[in-house]
């Protein structure tokens, strides 16, 4: 077990280096420091001196990979790649182009992201499983068919509609909760409710349909017939035998996204004005603050790799047939 996790972590290193190099190339060779400075300072009326000064101020005045003017180790370390990209490995995100401490921002904003993403995931799974179970219990009846049709309709509607529709109906007409915004502490709850409801509803269509097909696949297996032949009731067969087997793909499918929950939701956070990591990225892109975007891309990769490792561990936990190695 321990050896397995260790080996998987070692395997992750080349992946991270690859991601690191590719993002560096994209950010620095396609969009050179000169372009960044020009964008930050405003495109017109910018002198070359202003650009050079901006680069010095923000530490962009170094060569990309190799510094000929320096001595010894500094030839490699006193470069953009080392300063801006390799430091990400120690989770030293540095300062953003507008001068903010990125690490501090992330620590502060991730709680708002989690406050929305975790309830959406938990409530969503519960509702989707229940809904899918009901459809399977009434399989090949009109109830099941109308359930599927309902799911397809939910899936076909754009999530922007749910956001704006929710804000209009619950926030404006019914005036139950504020339309958008955020507050610290327990006050946060009234701001969280609406985005959570919208997030759950927009996920029901795809989620329930997927779970339904997992359940149906399990229902067709021989062990279900054995269970019925024992004289067990349909409810017991469903909840004891089928759910246990179906939870293998469900749990492993959920585990992979758990670490990424930290990253928040781009859409929900920016529409509801929640100061999480999702809106952080959106704002950074809008302000052309690439230091933040780079840090978040790297962080996302790390979290996704952690998610994949957790998934494999989850298999051993839910499926007795799977042993690591």
């Amino acid at each position: 077990m321990f050896a397995y996790v260790l080996r998987r972590m070692i395997y992750a290193i080349p992946v991270l280096i690859g991601v690191n190099i590719i993002t560096f190339l994209l950010f620095f060779m396609v969009n050179t420091p000169d372009d960044m400075a020009r964008a930050q300072l405003g495109d017109k009326y910018v002198t070359q001196q202003a650009i050079e000064r901006w680069k010095v101020d923000h530490g962009y005045n170094k060569p990309l990979f190799y510094n000929q003017t320096d001595e010894g180790m500094k030839k490699a370390t006193d470069t953009l790649f080392f300063q801006k990209s390799l430091k990400l490995f120690s989770f030293d995100f540095g300062r953003s182009d507008s001068g903010r401490d990125i690490g501090h921002d992330i620590k502060q904003r991730m709680w708002a992201s989690l406050a929305i993403a975790v309830p959406i995931m938990l409530i969503g799974i519960l509702i989707n499983i229940t809904f899918a179970m009901l459809m399977v219990f009434f399989r090949s009846t009109y109830l099941d068919i109308s359930g599927v049709v309902f799911c397809v309709i939910l899936m076909s509607v754009s999530s922007l509609f749910y956001i704006i529709g929710g804000q209009y109906l619950i926030g404006k007409l019914l005036r139950l909760v504020p339309i958008s915004g955020y507050a610290g502490g327990l006050d946060a709850i009234k701001f969280i409710i609406l985005p959570v409801v919208v997030g759950v509803i927009s996920g029901i269509g795809a989620g329930s349909r997927w779970y339904r097909s997992i359940f149906l696949e399990e229902m067709g297996k021989q062990y279900v017939i054995t269970a019925r032949a024992k004289g067990l009731s349909e409810i017991t067969v469903l909840f004891k035998h089928v759910l246990k087997n179906a939870s293998i793909p469900i749990i492993t499918g959920v585990v992979v996204i758990i670490p990424s929950l930290f990253m928040g939701s781009l859409l929900l956070e920016s529409f509801f004005g929640v100061p999480g990591l999702g809106s952080y990225v959106i704002d950074a892109i809008r302000q052309q603050d690439f230091a933040i975007v780079r840090a978040m891309v790297f962080l996302g990769t790390v979290l996704y790799i952690i998610g994949l490792i957790l998934t494999d561990l989850a298999y051993t936990w839910v499926d007795p047939r799977v042993r690591l190695n």
Partner: peptide, 22 residues
Amino acid sequence: RPLRGKSIAMIFQEPMSSLNPV
């Protein structure tokens, strides 16, 4: 239901798939 497995029981061809794997 009370007859199944009590008065009339059944075994199947493929004993691996006939048992619940988990």
